[in-house]
Amino acid sequence: MQAPVTHILALTNLRRARLLPAAGKVLVKQGQKVSPNDVIAETVLHPRHMVFDVRQALGITRPAQLSQAIERRVGDKVEVDDVLARSGGLFKRVLRAPVAGQVSIISGGRIVMEVDSPLFQLRAGLAGIITEIIPERGAILEASGALVQGTWGNGRTDSGVLLSLAATPEDVLTRERLDVSMRGAVVVAGHCAQADAIRAANELPLRGLILGSATADLLPVLQTALFPILLTEGFGRIPMNLAAHRILTTNEKRDTAVNATVWNAFTGERPEVLIPLPAAGSVPAESVTLKEGLNVRILGMQQAARVGMIVSLPAELVHLPNGVRARVAQVKLENDEQLAVPLCNLDVLE
């Protein structure tokens, strides 16, 4: 059975495609070094259009006068207050552009203008090297370092020095634990149940927050935070898995990039933390075949987030307490306890 992999690695090589959602302009070159906040490509996602009725605006009644009144041509760039059309005669009228844009259509006495919209800027999301350019869409980046992938992110990207408030995976983040010394840092904590703690982090501000879990009622606050927030386990009262906790806390005070992108099951893109390290590792696989010796994390059970190793994969179906018959794996936890866990409740850690 093939299983997706959550990468929690002390050292690895990464290859990431960073792509615009629509065609645009690529701003980097092959071989260029980039930092997490560097803009590598940009585009206009949702262009707006404005329609100007020249006949009505200038009070023109004769069709022959329209072509003389319109002073712009299709493709013309216009700035704010530039003249679009003007009438002659004793009582002159002028039609000006209220915003900057480009004339896209002139027809039937109307001018259609595409209005300049804010650019969507695609950031690198990690420190690395551009190894390939994808014309009009983005680039391929490669980097090496420690990697921790999560299950949820609020869609933001930033970087800073890593600081830990998680002496144990269960430690709770409160407003009182945040102080001015953490301004501009990426903070690791266990669980958060207080909206005030997130607001305090906004006020500092932090450059990133890595949590094991958070209560579901905090979702609106997490989504509107001004910095990236990543959950390694998800929503509920779930301690951070020991593998992720160990990597994050042992790399304290290192530069850290948090790419809290939304998990996309179709592209494979998911929220992740990269701690750049000088040595090179191997390229991780995106899926593996379940087998003995694999490190796994338990999902959706009383033992959620516990980490262990598969010691056997019985071929026969097993009756579970809920009455379902399913294939299971015998998993040996770090405290030497063994559990029979349904295969669908296992997440491979590599």
Rank of each mutant, 00 (worst) to 15 (best):
89 G>P: 02
140 I>V: 09
118 P>E: 09
100 A>M: 00
93 R>E: 11
102 Q>W: 04
58 L>N: 04
71 E>S: 04
90 L>Q: 14
120 F>C: 02
105 I>S: 14
82 D>S: 09
91 F>T: 09
72 R>F: 04
117 S>G: 03
149 Q>N: 05
135 P>L: 02
93 R>I: 09
70 I>A: 02
96 R>P: 12
142 E>Y: 06
136 E>Y: 13
110 R>A: 12
114 E>H: 04
95 L>F: 03
104 S>T: 15
121 Q>W: 03
143 A>M: 02
65 Q>W: 11
71 E>K: 13
66 L>E: 02
127 A>Q: 04
126 L>D: 03
108 G>K: 11
78 V>A: 08
129 I>P: 06
132 E>W: 01
140 I>Q: 09
116 D>Q: 13
140 I>S: 12
151 T>R: 14
129 I>S: 15
121 Q>S: 11
116 D>V: 12
92 K>W: 00
117 S>K: 12
101 G>W: 00
148 V>A: 01
76 D>R: 00
123 R>H: 11
138 G>I: 03
141 L>K: 00
58 L>T: 04
152 W>A: 09
144 S>P: 01
95 L>T: 00
120 F>D: 04
106 I>G: 06
153 G>D: 03
73 R>W: 11
77 K>P: 11
111 I>F: 08
121 Q>H: 11
132 E>R: 10
